[in-house]
Design a protein around this nucleic acid. Structure first.
Length: 503
RNA sequence: GGGUGCGUAGCUCAGUCGGUAGAGCAGCGGCCUUUUAAGCCGUUGGUCGAAGGUUCGAAUCCUUCCGCACUCACCA
């Protein structure tokens, strides 16, 4: 070996990349194609493993990524990983021929190959494909993290969360259980779609780029349309568009809405996330409570158990969900009669309990703060909290029972987190205009999360929206709950991360 | 934004009191036709996250910065 070549045996990443490029050249010289166009796969690994009795001595073609190679001179064992699992390969010089075996010796963990061979069992009883021919399908040049396993114990697991999220493809290759979460996510998405379709709902798509953002209180991402020479916002919610469709005469609509909110990130917030919003004409929030309850029960059933273990709690979906008004909860946990309390009473309560507060808070904000701190942590089993303060619900109808300070709104709490938010939708155009003008005043005064005034939306409501029930469900959180994940990053294939500087 | 912790070879990790960097796997060169964390022999590989500082001497101590995780706050 020349001195030049000696240097190239250094196992820096750069040299490994070079070595593997040289292998590609050698493979080509030998007359093999390192990047062919297709390969005929007859069996997935799982099918071979599950049907050994029928397939024994039969010829199959499998394809996948080499995850492990054990070379023993003139014969070798390897494990091939495809979408559904792994299967062992036995590759011997006698069976595949001198030329192919020399080529095989140039292969690395991470290469993608196709193997045609005979199904057999080894001396130790492992189902194995004994290769009669081997085809390189894609040569790898960048080394994979090496993860080993014995008796279910994983050695050198690829665990660096930053790398796993940034290079999700590596995570998926070497941590197969990660795939399960996303397979389940797809199953829940499919079931959700079926749930709505079966009930006569129409799936719609509304603008993500919006001239005005609304339907929630949040800061938006801003972008610019060049030929219109106009700033546009990425939607924070699709609510105002779905309501326009109800005005237009669709009576049941839903959308999987990717929303964008320019706010903090933590284990339950990602700047882009998925909500399911749905609106149905002629129903109120009581109807929607039943609907949402049925939905969660359907997903629990789909996932195979009405008892879901999450964050150390056993969540029971088999029983009817609790339904408690804000007022009842305040009486129960804080001995506060919110119907009688005024802003001054709340301020006195805070002083008496030596807790910090902002004297500018209004009635709704006092309720909201106290609720978050003292009541939300107690809501473990599925609980509908009903009847919210009007001040924080500008799109909901006033409570029909008569207290002007409250609206017909519910939120569903499970394990201290919010999963759904719903209203008897406000359809009185005069009230709606006043409330959105109020929001706009807050925004002008500096509340950058207050809702912008959308004149066209008001005109739609003026045209006449039937009585309507509407719901938003945090879909990523639903996925988290039913897959046992406690970070939103683990239910998003590519969670938001600060850009890294790549050389 | 605050607090805590982490950042060392491609991966997983050691690194004592401040004394000049280690292991396993992977890689590279050999042996090996039923192995399976294959084995055996040999071997390479480092801007110790970055920049300053203290010191005769820094992976180690100090400062600042960058990134990530956890957490609190904010935020539906």
């Amino acid at each position: 070996m020349t001195e030049q070549n000696m240097n190239e045996t250094h196992s820096t990443l750069e040299n490994i990349l070079e070595q593997r490029k040289e292998k590609i050249a050698k493979i080509k010289e030998m007359g093999f194609e390192p990047f062919p166009y297709s390969y005929t796969v007859t069996h997935k690994s799982k099918v071979v493993l599950d049907n050994y009795d029928e397939l024994e001595e039969k010829t199959v073609s499998v394809a996948g990524r080499l995850m492990n190679i054990r070379r023993m001179g003139k014969a070798s064992f390897a494990h091939l990983q495809d979408a559904e699992g792994r299967i062992q390969l036995y590759i011997s010089k006698n069976d595949i021929g001198e030329e192919s075996y020399v080529m095989f010796k140039l292969l690395d963990i991470g290469d993608i190959i196709g193997v045609k061979g005979i199904v057999m069992k080894t001396r130790t009883g492992e189902t194995t494909v004994k290769a009669t021919s081997l085809t390189l399908l894609t040569k790898n040049i960048r080394p994979l993290p090496i993860v080993k396993e014995k008796d279910g114990v994983v050695y050198d697991a690829f665990t660096d969360k930053e790398l796993r999220y940034r290079k999700r493809y590596l995570d998926l290759i070497v941590n197969p259980e990660v795939k399960d979460t996303f397979v389940k996510r797809a199953a829940i998405t499919r079931a959700t779609r079926k749930f709505f379709d079966d009930r006569g709902y129409l799936e719609v798509e509304t603008p993500i780029l919006q001239a005005l953002y609304g339907g929630a209180n949040a800061r938006p991402f801003v972008t610019h349309h060049n030929s219109l020479d106009q700033d546009l916002y990425l939607r924070i919610a699709d609510e105002l568009y779905l309501k326009r469709l109800i005005v237009g005469g669709f009576e049941k609509v839903y959308e999987f809405s990717r929303n964008f909110r320019n706010e903090g990130m933590d284990r339950s917030h990602n700047p882009e996330f998925t909500a399911i919003e749905f609106y149905e004409a002629y129903v109120d929030y009581f109807y929607m409570m039943d609907f949402v309850e049925e939905y969660f029960k359907a997903i629990a059933e789909l996932m195979g158990s009405m008892i879901v273990e999450y964050r150390g709690e056993k969540i029971d979906f088999s029983k009817p969900f609790e339904r408690k008004s804000m007022a009842d909860l305040f009486t129960e946990y804080l001995k506060i009669d919110i119907a009688a309390f005024t802003e001054k009473d709340f301020a006195d309560w805070y002083q008496k309990n030596k807790k910090e507060f902002d004297p500018k808070w209004n009635y709704g904000q006092f309720l909201d703060k106290l609720f978050d701190e003292y009541i939300e942590p107690k809501l473990i089993q599925p609980t509908f909290v009903i009847d919210y303060p009007k001040a924080i619900s500008p799109l909901a109808k006033v409570d029909r029972k008569g207290d002007e300070r409250f609206v017909e709104r519910f939120e569903l709490f499970i394990c201290s987190s919010e999963y759904a938010n719903a209203f008897s939708e406000l359809n009185d155009p005069i009230d709606q205009r006043e409330r959105l003008e109020g929001q706009d005043r807050l925004r002008v005064e500096g509340d950058d999360e207050a809702q912008a005034f959308d004149e066209d939306f008001i005109q739609a409501i003026e045209t006449g929206m039937p009585p309507t029930g509407g719901v938003g469900i945090g879909f990523d959180r639903v996925i988290m709950l039913f897959t046992g994940q406690t970070s939103i990053k683990d239910v998003l294939l590519f969670p938001a991360m600060r850009s890294e500087k790549l050389s």
